[in-house]
């Protein structure tokens, strides 16, 4: 097989497979998000340390899970349920802290760190062009290494 055929075949296989993936993803109905479980993982069990209502075995967590189920069944929105929990247990009931106020830094700092990292990489790059070995040089390196191997 020539290089050209290999390249075309490779692109063909990759594009066809990706098409299958996209087609499958597009054709599948949007999954019914488990709202109760989702909410229960975002809310802290008020009497536990760092455990969500979903994962805590405490009796209170179980009662609150039932409460969430009832509210969801009664048609409350996610925000209404979350607001109810904040009003009842305080803001630290949120395991996913709000983006503003005293937890704003939690959202800003990682972004700043990522920005500094990107700036660092760009500044580490050497200016100017890099000498690239041409094919003759490569052949010489290969031959030299081959000699070393053999000898």
């Amino acid at each position: 097989m020539s290089e050209r055929v290999r390249n075309v075949a490779a692109v063909g296989v990759i594009v066809a497979s990706l098409a299958v993936v996209v087609a499958v993803l597009a054709s599948s109905p949007p999954s019914d998000a488990d709202r109760v479980h989702d909410l229960a993982t975002r809310l802290k069990c008020p009497i536990c340390d760092n455990e969500s209502i979903a994962s805590s075995p405490a009796d209170l967590a179980r009662e609150l899970l039932v409460l969430i189920e009832e509210r969801v069944a009664a048609g409350s929105t996610d925000d209404e349920i979350v607001d109810f929990f904040i009003a009842t247990y305080g803001e630290d009931v949120l395991l996913d802290p709000p983006r503003g106020g005293r937890t704003a830094l939690l959202w800003v700092l990682p972004m700043v760190a990522a920005g500094v990292g990107i700036a660092l990489v760009i500044s580490r790059r050497r200016s100017g062009t890099v000498p690239i070995l041409d094919d003759d040089d490569r052949a010489r390196v290969r031959a030299a290494l081959h000699d070393r191997e053999a000898g």
Partner: peptide, 12 residues
């Protein structure tokens, strides 16, 4: 420093 309690959990 402030006495405020917040939680940072798995979702974050």
């Amino acid at each position: 420093f402030t006495g405020d309690r917040v939680s940072v959990g798995a979702p974050w």
